[in-house]
């Protein structure tokens, strides 16, 4: 959370001058700050916590699926993998600033392993980093300006491929018989449970009004207003 969350230009000094009541001080809108606002940081932290918790619950589902799949239980993770990455595209969809996908995956991983204890251990931080970067890549390439369905599909694919690369390093998947099957399952899961699910969830949440004060909420509000009053 460090790099993206670094305070930009603390404006305390400037305000202190105004506090003395100089009426002729220039009028400067303090909203014009770069970087992430506190509201956005808290939103990201809470999203990370919620999804860290859900991910942790998904690990329990994974255990059940593993046992159900017998000797091929290890493949269960590929079916579910997309679900472990959904918060990254969701956070980017809501906040629309660079880096938030990576940050939110990292914090979710920290929550999952440091507070809830996960069998993957601290490697989760690395996993979160790689998955976050993978999911964010599609949005970086469209410069955080496009949020159509196909961008989310692309995000799911890049996330799945990044995650496959990491798995190959960690477990030597490339030396096994099932490599193609693993990659195929991961990509399908990435598209459905990561990319598309993020878009569906984001739209459903925006409808309830809890995201009104975010980039997503503002965009939807402006679009609705434009639809009502044709310019």
């Amino acid at each position: 959370m460090t790099a993206a969350g670094r305070d930009v230009a603390p404006d305390a000094g400037a305000d202190r001058v105004d506090a003395d009541g100089r009426a002729d001080a220039p009028v400067v809108d303090v909203r014009a700050r770069r970087g992430l606002t506190l509201s956005e940081l808290v939103l990201l932290a809470v999203l990370a916590v919620l999804f860290g918790f859900l991910y942790w619950a998904l690990v329990q589902a994974w255990a059940a699926l593993q046992i159900a799949m017998g000797p091929f239980g290890d493949l269960a993770q590929h079916v579910l993998i997309g679900g472990w990455m959904v918060v990254a595209p969701l956070a980017i969809y809501i906040v629309r600033k660079p880096g938030v996908g990576v940050v939110v995956e990292l914090v979710a991983a920290l929550v999952e392993f440091a507070f809830l204890a996960s069998p993957v251990g601290p490697m989760l931080l690395l996993v979160g980093l790689v998955q976050g970067v993978g999911a964010e890549l599609a949005f970086t390439l469209t410069r955080y300006r496009r949020y159509g369905w196909w961008v989310f599909v692309a995000s799911g694919v890049t996330a799945a491929l990044a995650s496959t690369l990491l798995g190959t390093v960690r477990y030597g998947w490339h030396l096994q018989d099932l490599f193609a099957l693993r990659v195929g399952l991961q990509v399908v899961s990435g598209i459905v449970l990561c990319g598309l699910l993020a878009r569906v969830l984001g739209d459903a949440l925006a409808r309830t009004g809890v995201l009104d004060e975010t980039a997503l909420g503002r965009e939807r509000r402006a679009r609705r207003a434009a639809a009502e009053v044709p310019a």
Partner: peptide, 22 residues
């Protein structure tokens, strides 16, 4: 130790409060 900003620190702790109540 690693320069986590005060705003990021506050946000993380707020997240932890949420986790406690979850």
């Amino acid at each position: 130790r690693v320069g986590l900003t005060s705003r990021a620190a506050a946000a993380l702790l707020a997240g932890h409060r949420v986790l406690e109540q979850l």
